[in-house]
Amino acid sequence: MLEASNIECVRGERTLFSHVDFRLDGGELLDLQGGNGSGKTSLLRMICGLSAPANGEIRWRGELIGKLGEDYRRELCFLGHHNAIKEELTPLENLLASAKLADEILDAGEALDALEIVGLAGREDLACRYLSQGQKRRVALARLVNERRALWLLDEPYVALDAAAVELIAGLIGAHLQRGGLAVLTTHQTVNIVAGSVRQLRLN
């Protein structure tokens, strides 16, 4: 379903990586590994379509992602380094607003349930600037609870999370893969995800 061939990434004058190929089908997880600055985030942003590779092409269901445009973005869920939550809004408002902007239907009850699952019960009406770093990350990750899009792209999802939350997120990703979804993950931690198959790609 997701295919990349001969990808090259150039930052300034330096070539970060070249000749990167991979193929990912339903129920599979791609684990991107590599040291700091090896281009994991850059590759993830290319898969999103936020930046274009210097060379090579990325295809989704056989079509170039640049051509698919909105049809591709409709099947994509990206969670970057930044949490994309507003400090002034409460976790509940953040979750509802991001669902609306992503053109998804989410009612307040479902949003409250999602926040409870990620362990934010009792905090849903507190402005996010009063939350800790880990709690903010949980707000961002609460999106995944009701996320049914096919392709999840997660950039270091476990940063700032405690052991229980890491376990929970790994469980959400596992359930997504069992539904036949795809996921691409960058992480420095080894976390066990129950999945049909895990492919590893090492950038250096």
Binding site: L50, E70, G80
Partner: peptide, 19 residues
Amino acid sequence: HRDGTLEQLALAPQPLGLI
């Protein structure tokens, strides 16, 4: 831009111009 919301808006399944 700073908090990453702009990336999410750019990845929304609607034209960015409307946003």
